[in-house]
């Protein structure tokens, strides 16, 4: 397993919890009241409940089942059934390495996290799941470039391959550049996390979002046909 994008930073707001999957790894990703992001195995050590169903209180994630509170380091510090008890230090959520960079949350479930640095990626567009292998998604977004925003002179370049990040750079100083970081969920599911350069207007973001729908439809159709 390698470093993978799991969400746009914008889409995980303060005190929010989400679920993300990387291969067999089911994880809960959450942001504390002060903004700290954590990614953990999606399982409360107490009774196995998915922590992505939990709720954030201040700097803690609480499990939906019995309200056990875990701090940003993953340590359980409060068990509501025994309010006076100091929980043993052995009760810990299994935490993964995470980093926030270029408007994207990156996770490595098995080792050190190495986010891809994309200096001009500043405007979040959207994340879109596509029912196809990551290579097909990469190919789809390379070929089906946007008609008006990205001119025929657009250059598609793979700027990273672990994980894959695609840069679509149009020719012309005022044109909008687009970046796509690909999350390899499994061999039949990919999530494309899309950002743009800071000259993208709200209308551009809406247009890019619709374009992403079209690319998904075409890519899923071709992936289906080739099977």
């Amino acid at each position: 397993m390698s470093t993978q994008p799991v969400s746009l930073s914008r889409d995980l707001t303060i005190k929010q919890v989400m679920r993300a999957e990387l291969g067999d790894v089911d994880m809960a990703v959450w942001r504390s009241a002060s903004g700290v992001v954590s990614a953990w195995e999606n399982r409360c050590p107490h009774r196995g409940m998915r922590l992505s169903h939990g709720f954030v209180r201040g700097e803690s994630l609480a499990c939906a089942y019995h309200g056990w509170h875990y701090n940003c380091a993953g340590a359980c510090h409060y068990i509501p059934a025994h309010p006076e008890l100091a929980p043993p230090k052995t009760i810990k959520a299994n935490a993964y390495n995470i980093a926030e960079a270029s408007g994207i949350i990156w996770v490595n479930a098995t080792g050190n996290v190495a986010p891809i640095d994309i200096p001009s990626s500043t405007v979040p567009v959207r994340s879109i799941p596509i029912a196809c292998p990551v290579e097909s998604a990469l190919n789809g977004f390379s070929k089906h470039t946007h008609q008006s925003l990205l001119t025929q002179h657009t250059q598609a370049e793979i700027i990273a391959d672990t994980p894959y990040v695609l840069a679509l750079t149009p020719v012309g100083s005022n044109s909008v550049g687009v970046y796509i970081a690909f999350q390899h969920v499994n061999d039949s599911t990919t999530v494309a996390h899309i950002t743009a350069t800071d000259n993208a207007s709200m209308n551009d973001v809406v247009a890019l979002s619709r374009w992403a729908n079209e690319v998904r439809d075409i890519t899923e159709f071709s992936a289906g046909v080739s099977e």
Partner: peptide, 12 residues
């Protein structure tokens, strides 16, 4: 899980 150690119980 029936074997101890796979989940962590408390007095409750």
């Amino acid at each position: 899980p029936l074997d101890p150690g796979q989940e962590i119980p408390t007095k409750a």
